[in-house]
Nucleic acid binder design. Structure first.
Lengths: 254, 254
DNA sequence: TCCTGTAATATGTCGGAGTAATTGAGAGAG
DNA sequence: CTCTCTCAATTACTCCGACATATTACAGGA
């Protein structure tokens, strides 16, 4: 599906000699700049309080127009990463102001080597939210939800988690649970965290094979939700999160 | 060269009581536009799938430059509310793509009459997260955390919640709890929801006096955290959230 | 110490050139 | 005759750079 070729030479006829932004196919220019600056901030390259002074200077260095740079800054501002005032420049805000749950910010955080402590925080939050979601799903699911989950589970069994199809089925399974909670806020939260966790999954994949067959644990969650057993659903989901944490920790920390 | 455009170079020369954006003092122009469009989307004035077609038309109607309009659109895009593509226009994305936990989006959602179901979802999430936060705080707090919480509690007692100082102390109290969890992700999440809940608090204030003295319940939370009793802290915080939910529900819909 | 002026920097505006995707008309196959 | 595929024109976003304005940090004087 996604085999678009990089569009042949945009207006810039020169080859990228230095610090120009890499611009993907579907990605807009200001999006690329935001990505570059966002990852720089998230990786600690710019610390809170630092100033990205010189609107014109930055735009020149990145070889883009001021408009593009400004729109990128708007994106970062919208996500609470920076704040810019006349004369003072654009300052990186303290970490507590960052929208760490924003999917894009999460992506930037995991673009390089992610901070171990942050990954731990994220899993801790996941361990709080996901079991509660499973509990609600067990109370509110209908026949249709169960069918979708059952199909996803079957697909997971057919293709393993080693394939892209299998991982897609895994996502479908978890999305079906979230959808069954009938809670939009909970849904977007878990989806955000989940997208980041997906990254760790493929990180883990790179390091070594899956240490354990995850299917039985998924089945236990499904059975509990299908039976409407809220307590069992929460417990089973807790086990699932714990396993993911263990795997990720051993794959990362060494 | 100056004569070819006799039209008003000073755009603000005309008084505009037409459909111009209201621009607050500290608020930037594109921020005002984003607010206007954001509230329009959150209030359902634009449904998912609708197109805000015509960059030039919109900019003209709002009497702002295309640049300002575009920067506003960037903000909305960053928050997952819209997506704009060439030729297709700017479409409102499905609700599940919205960053409902973004403080600004939350603010837009509560700018008009908030959706009852959404408020319920939010409180449900709060009932999941806050007790867990209190539990962690009880396990990880140090002397300094306890001191800050104690001071905030004293300030709450002195000024009541009817005064701005009292509400500030309330915020300090809850922030101290969040800070004691040592979990940044949890902290930003609760802070986001909290800011929205603050709104409901003053909504409630407008309707009638506080139905019950909230101090003793806060004290119970404090005592449990200070004692390091995780279970009791979670339980006491659960009570606090439930009370807030009751108050808000009766103040809003009935 | 307080006030005031100035310079530096971000903010807002404008119009135009460039680029990408939708749309529908036309050609060809069944 | 109908259906599908291709392709070009249209249309709306994307990016640019120069200009004008507003705000404010900072320094120098009263």
């Amino acid at each position: 599906m996604g085999q678009d070729r990089p569009s042949t030479t945009a207006h810039a006829a020169e080859n990228g000699d230095s610090a120009k932004v890499a611009r993907g196919p579907g990605r807009r220019l200001h999006g690329a700049i935001a990505h570059k600056l966002g990852t720089a901030i998230l990786s600690g390259q710019y610390a809170p309080g630092d100033v990205l002074s010189g609107e014109v200077a930055f735009a020149e260095e990145l070889d883009v127009s001021r408009s593009a740079y400004r729109e990128a800054i708007q994106v970062l501002t919208a996500k609470g990463l920076v704040e810019s005032r006349p004369k003072a420049g654009t300052r990186v805000l303290p970490r507590t102001r960052w929208n760490l749950l924003d999917p894009e910010v999460l992506g930037w955080a995991f673009a390089g080597e992610p901070d171990i402590q942050f990954v731990r925080d994220l899993f801790e939050l996941r361990a709080i939210v996901e079991p509660a979601a499973a509990r609600l799903a067990a109370q509110r699911r209908d026949k249709n939800d169960i069918k979708i989950m059952k199909d996803a589970l079957a697909a997971m069994r057919r293709h393993t988690l080693a394939t892209e199809l299998g991982r897609a089925a895994d996502r479908d399974f978890h999305n079906a649970i979230l959808n069954a909670t009938r809670n939009d806020a909970l849904q977007v939260l878990s989806a955000s965290i989940g997208s980041a966790v997906n990254w760790t999954t493929q990180y883990k994949q790179r390091a070594r094979a899956l240490p354990r067959n995850p299917i039985p644990d998924h089945v236990r969650v499904f059975d509990a939700i299908a039976a409407g057993d809220a307590a069992a659903a929460a417990e089973a989901m807790g086990v699932l999160v714990d396993l993911a944490l263990e795997d990720t920790a051993s794959a990362m920390g060494g």
